[in-house]
Design a binder for these strands. Structure first.
Lengths: 336, 336
DNA sequence: TCGGTTTATTAAAACGTTTTCGCTGCTCTT
DNA sequence: AAGAGCAGCGAAAACGTTTTAATAAACCGA
């Protein structure tokens, strides 16, 4: 590998001058600067990122916490899209991203220790298990951090507007004439709490009665469990006219349960999902859902994190809420 | 940050001894070794990975090439799963993974240059655009490399058995009595060539006629295009009894086209997919497909790559083929 | 002409490791 | 008793940068 020393030898200048020339410092003449840059290119020079990191304490590397738990993680379209947009934005701004985990190579290392070991400049929690104690070590640590869809005190976060998202959906189905609505919720979590809040508030505002037996607690991203819960709901006597599913993916389970029960969507019963993942468009009938702005969530998170890194003094810690939009399919009937 | 020097001061030994003690070299007595390890732990010492990398030329970091093209990349379940399993296995073996791209931070840098800059120990091409000239720079470079679902001369690769996979599917539908089979192919690529070969060969072996007007060339992972092609196929006079879709995801388009045409699956026409992604199980009727062993593909790729890195002399360059298995749903009728 | 300022350059230290080699003492042979 | 061998430890160089402080050269105004 060609190093600064090699270039300095070739150009008859010192290593210091080469370094400054390549980093465009002002205290080196235009002539030598040009000469150095030229031969650097000729020799195929590339800086050594770890040597640089060693001196500057900056790696231009972002750590991403991302769990692999079944059903979540990379194969979850929502998170995959957010990660993708986060990655793209970070790269645009000059940062690479590295997955951070624990237990690397058998040696136990906490997530935070791993971050310090790799010297990442900042951390993004994109899809993590917030019940993991490791998380708090990171949150209480002193590395820049941005979380997604979860809020910690004194830390920046980017969240989708789960509360108003549900409210908009309620508005919509209300406008279609629905008054008895069931809600199959996801797993207890910050996100789920918000959606539940939004649901209850919107119902109360519209004068829709919230009946406990129509509020089921289930699981995100699980067609199986949603299948069972939907079945249970349908077997109960008082049938709602519309069912809110935990998310689009689990809505498949709901669809199947309804069909297996001999009912038609939306003629006999209406269905709405949440997330707006690509394939919800291809369900038949097309699913009405709340499409999250994954591109914006990911890119804002990257921008915020990098801003915390590069100008800590002037960047304020805040919670950024990203709006989505209703995606109307054919799964909600107008029953007015 | 606490460094070796700090520990050496506290223990009244030299930096060298500390380093050796922590790396468990044999030329330091058990007593001092224990003492050093103990105080290192007390002081919260963690090695600095870039300083170490600078000396040893090993980063324990793997570069992953992964394109973000629409429809491919992270949101493609097959690749997401492979990546996930690759990541898990690599971490188990002590390696982190970093996404490699070009144009980081506005400065143009080829993929290979980026790898050298970050000093990754090896590269995995998991889902890349093989028409990109950058790819060849990497292939011709001298970093360890493993490709997935694509074979380069003199490079190790892990591939799914596209050829026999299709053959097994043909065997299956043949056993169900199908003799006129249509094949909507994906985009021209190495993978597609293999599947096509398998299809043609298997048909010839069984005496099934391969009619050109039933071989359509389409796109992977595109329900829209597959919808159009399926429609076109159905509007042609001679209707096949079974259609092979490019993959499970695009099969949704096929399903919709068939339903819109007023036909039932599988009573009027049978359908098979490819990949065995999770949600194909929830299509109704459940899709018959060829389930790829994504877990094995990813983990074998990681093992092979790391083996190339750690014992280059004794690791042979080879193409590893990973078998999948038919996943029988209800989308193929028995018409015997 | 001279002191002062600016400009261009460099030597050297530093970042935190790993590793080679050499230096002690000690034990073991003979 | 003397040499060989060995175990335990340290000094120092090296990896490739960046940065500070010092030096040298050129220029400029009075």
């Amino acid at each position: 590998m060609v190093s600064l020393k090699d270039i300095s030898a070739r150009c008859n200048v010192s290593v210091a001058t080469v370094s400054k020339a390549l980093n465009d410092h002002k205290d080196v003449s235009a002539a030598t600067k040009e000469r150095i840059i030229k031969t650097a290119k000729e020799m195929g020079y590339f800086p050594n990122s770890q040597a640089r990191a060693l001196k500057t304490n900056r790696t231009f590397n972002l750590g991403v916490m991302f769990t692999d738990e079944a059903g979540r993680g990379l194969t979850h379209e929502f998170f995959a899209k957010v990660l993708n947009s986060f990655k793209t934005e970070a790269e645009q701004l000059g940062y690479d991203i590295t997955f951070i985990n624990k237990n690397i190579g058998g040696k136990h290392m906490s997530t935070y220790e791993h971050c310090r070991y790799r010297n990442v400049d900042g951390i993004a929690m994109i899809c993590t298990d917030f019940s993991d104690p490791d998380v708090y070590e990171v949150v209480n640590g002193d590395l820049p951090l941005v979380t997604i869809d979860h809020v910690f005190e004194c830390r920046s976060a980017v969240v989708s507007n789960n509360e108003t998202g549900i409210e908009e959906l309620i508005d919509y189905v209300y406008s279609m004439g629905h008054r008895s609505i069931a809600f199959i919720q996801g797993k207890r979590s910050a996100v789920m709490e918000r959606r539940l809040n939004g649901f209850v508030r919107a119902c109360m505002n519209r004068g829709i009665e919230v009946e406990p037996e129509r509020m089921l607690s289930g699981e995100y991203h699980s067609p199986q469990i949603t299948y069972e819960l939907t079945k249970k709901l349908l077997e109960n006597g008082s049938r709602p006219t519309c069912i809110f599913m935990p998310d689009d993916y689990s809505a498949i389970g709901g669809y199947n349960a309804i069909k297996d029960h001999g009912l038609r969507i939306p003629e006999d019963i209406s269905v709405v999902g949440y997330d707006g993942i690509a394939y919800s468009e291809f369900l038949s009938p097309q699913l009405t859902s709340y499409k999250q702005n994954t591109a914006k969530i990911g890119s804002l998170a990257a921008k915020k994190l990098i801003s915390h890194i590069e100008s800590p003094a002037t960047t304020l810690t805040e919670v950024i809420t990203v709006d989505g939009a209703i995606q109307t399919g054919a799964s909600v009937a107008n029953i007015l």
